[in-house]
Design a protein around this nucleic acid. Structure first.
Lengths: 230, 230
DNA sequence: ACAAAAGTGTTGTACGTACACCCATGA
DNA sequence: TCATGGGTGTACGTACAACACTTTTGT
């Protein structure tokens, strides 16, 4: 170790990187959007046949963020609109061999996540997915908790939307994440007053009164990550 | 890795655990308390002679929390009143060899931290410590940010105080962490109304009007850690 | 015309902040 | 008795939730 005084033989501890990827599904019939995430089916022991979070081994010459992004690309085929480290899981008994998993979580826009369909990958409802391998159930729980928390004090919700969106779109994202309805009037004032969105002159028509389209104000950060590097 | 399909040879990546330990110093002359942290002087390359965070290699049969607690015990000689994972740092170039550091942060009560004086360990002001080895400057910055943040929405400040304390004691902790004065009247109402402290019948005398002593209400958690295990 | 979503206005409550003021003790 | 910190009262401003109401479209 870096700060210890005794000799330090390398220990047989392996480092993996996994990512909880969230996206959105607004299906035709449903009246509210769902938060979904991609799972991969394991093709070998342990937990062969079970669903698990996408991930891979950390390479010696690869930053952890890069490994998470690579993982994500291999799964969805595209880049995330938001990526943040979630937690490092390293309980001795969480896997037959000793593995420390650096877990990230990411947001992918709906249109993006619908594009890339891959072998052995399926998108599940974030709250009602099948039982997962390892401690991945717990990890998804924690990622969801973090997502719900963060949506309250940052603007990450935009990470699930395309460049142009209506206030109803944005509200739908919040409602899907928080699991409850929000007052359209109050929601409008809140987000309009926050300076995080910029009104355009375009409108979306189709049903009833046309809604103004907004775009994200890139001057404000998607999420406050403190003094951590980007 | 756990979720990948190809073969997985162990990579030469080593896992370390370090801890940012915060305590308090209320010195005789000073009118306000300071947040301090213990640093260890490195006795070997790289960065020989430089100060660094206490830490050590993660052992194969040891949970990461346990490794952090062990580290902490080896440094301060005692158990922390609060311990939480901070972040996993793993940039390729943060050390000559590839090291992933799982960094924790902890709170130690002042009386406890004053007790154990160890070789090669010194307590420094958290904001004006000497330049540290590796990326530890950045890590301390981040830990301080987290501490300041968390003090706003949780009750971790109690982790720096003994069992019995006055409201002025508690306020002093908040002021030291936040770096600004707080209104005694409003502070009192806020914390009294939160239900996190229980008044005792004892008072502390010594100067002016005696102040009531309070104790921490252990029914409420020190900090909300979400669905993570304790 | 009517339903429904877009968008505006108004009101009440909760809470944080500022600050005036009284209380109890040591010196 | 006076200085000082302990402790109470009060008034103001902001933020948010609730909800009534107007506007604009498709059908």
């Amino acid at each position: 170790m870096q700060t210890q005084t005794s000799a330090s033989p390398p220990e047989p501890i392996r480092v993996a990187v996994s990512t909880v990827i969230f996206s959105l599904r607004r299906d035709a019939g449903a009246d509210r959007a769902r938060v979904v995430l991609p799972l991969v089916r394991r093709t070998r022991d342990p937990f062969e046949g079970r669903w698990a979070l996408p991930g891979g081994w950390l390479r010696v010459d690869e930053d952890m963020d890069a490994a998470a992004a690579r993982t994500l690309a291999e799964t969805t085929g595209l880049a995330p609109s938001y990526l943040e480290q979630l937690y490092a899981f390293g309980e001795v008994d969480r896997s037959p061999s000793r593995v420390v998993s650096i877990v990230y979580w990411a947001l992918v826009r709906e249109d993006v996540s619908r594009a890339a369909e891959q072998e052995n990958v399926a998108w599940y409802d974030a709250t009602t997915h099948p039982q997962l391998a390892f401690d991945h159930d717990q990890i998804v729980q924690y990622a969801l908790w973090r997502l719900r928390n963060k949506v309250g004090y940052s603007r990450i919700a935009h990470g699930l939307l395309p460049a142009l969106f209506t206030l109803a779109d944005l509200r739908e994202v919040y409602e899907a994440i928080l699991g409850r309805r929000l007052d359209p009037a109050n929601f409008r004032r809140q987000v309009e007053g926050s300076g995080t969105i910029i009104p355009t002159d375009e409108h979306r028509t189709g049903s009833h009164r046309p809604a103004r389209l907004y775009r994200y104000n890139h001057d404000v950060e998607l999420a406050d990550r403190g003094p951590l590097p980007d």
